[in-house]
């Protein structure tokens, strides 16, 4: 995935079954953000792989003052990339088991 300067990783081990999974997001490279970044730290949250939209979570982070509006897209894309990877890994595991 593209290096957005925002890291998103699993905050728990993926058992491959749960649809709601804990993720952790933090800014690794503030220079890649458009807005002036104030260090908010690592943000942990749960994400429903089937129902939720990464951009909507990013919007909520903006609304909560964790990011500026100008960085909503980059945060959303970072979450989207990680979610896609998690889904891809799950699909691969399922097809391997078959």
């Amino acid at each position: 995935a593209e290096d957005t300067g925002v890291r998103v990783e699993l905050a728990e081990e993926d058992d491959g079954k749960k649809t709601s999974i804990a993720l952790r997001l933090w800014v690794e490279d503030p220079k890649k953000l458009k807005g002036k970044y104030k260090d908010s730290g690592a943000i942990e949250f749960t994400f429903d792989l089937n129902k939720e939209v990464p951009e909507a979570v990013a919007q909520e982070m903006v609304d909560s003052g964790l990011f500026l509006d100008s960085d909503m897209k980059i945060v959303g894309r970072s979450i989207r990339d990680r979610v896609a990877l998690i889904k891809w890994r799950r699909e691969r595991t399922i097809s391997r088991d078959k």
Binding site: A42, I43, E44, E60, M61
Partner: peptide, 27 residues
């Protein structure tokens, strides 16, 4: 604990805590 809980108007919970040193990219 240094973790702060942020609850959004949509009811989502964000748990914010300091990023460990080793996680940060060397500047």
């Amino acid at each position: 604990s240094t973790t702060t809980e942020v609850v959004t108007s949509a009811g989502r919970r964000f748990f914010v805590s300091p990023v460990p040193e080793f996680r940060l990219k060397e500047q």
